[in-house]
């Protein structure tokens, strides 16, 4: 698994650059044009993250977060989920920037390579902002009756969340 994880980037780099040169794409120009997009994204998410990370840090320093996770841990531990992860699992389908802020908080508080940090990373990486996606996609074509979509999407999210806990415990626990 380690080899696979480490080799993804080198392979992508070489394949992309090589095929660019092969197709006579001005690779450096294309790169800088694309990098501009990354910069725009970063600037776009900044205001929301300032507000959210500030609020989450307040929540944590008040002691309320520790208090709440303490209350929840007997329930979550039966499922093998660390209680620290639960707020992320609840917020993830609702808010993309909110959950990104929570992941940042967990990585800072527990370390990115701790079990909690890894579970949070995997959960974040393998899920989407479900309700936002549903609203934008169905809303754009005026669909009111979405039938069973919400349940199927949430079932998929729950699967990703539970599997992320199990997989991390198996690989890193």
């Amino acid at each position: 698994m380690r080899i696979l994880s480490v080799s993804v980037m080198p392979v992508l780099f070489l394949v992309i650059i090589a095929s660019g040169l092969f197709r006579r794409v001005p690779v450096f120009e294309a790169f800088t044009d694309g990098a501009k997009e990354g910069l725009k994204t970063a600037v776009r998410i900044l205001p929301a993250l300032v507000g959210l990370i500030a609020a989450i840090t307040m929540f944590r320093s008040s002691g309320l977060l520790t208090f709440l996770t303490g209350c929840l841990s007997p329930v979550t531990e039966k499922l093998g989920i660390p209680a620290e992860i639960l707020p992320l699992a609840l917020l993830r389908p609702v808010s993309g920037s909110g959950s990104l802020a929570l992941v940042e908080d967990l990585l800072t508080a527990h370390g990115p390579d701790s079990l909690v940090g890894r579970i949070a990373s995997v959960m974040m990486g393998s899920t989407e902002t479900t309700f936002y996606t549903l609203a934008v996609y169905f809303g754009s074509v005026g669909v009111k009756d979405t039938r069973f979509s919400v349940w199927a999407a949430l079932l998929a999210d729950m699967t990703a969340m539970l599997v992320s806990v199990w997989v991390c415990r198996y690989f890193f626990g």
């Binding site: 992508l12 780099f13 992309i16 650059i17 095929s19 660019g20 092969f22 197709r23 794409v25 690779v27 294309a30 790169f31 800088t32 044009d33 694309g34 990098a35 501009k36 997009e37 990354g38 910069l39 994204t41 970063a42």
Partner: peptide, 18 residues
């Protein structure tokens, strides 16, 4: 920021080369 730009830049190369 740095890593985001690196990735979006690389992807733009991928897109233009088909």
């Amino acid at each position: 920021c740095g890593m985001m730009c690196l990735w979006t830049g690389l992807l733009e190369v991928a897109r233009r080369s088909g």
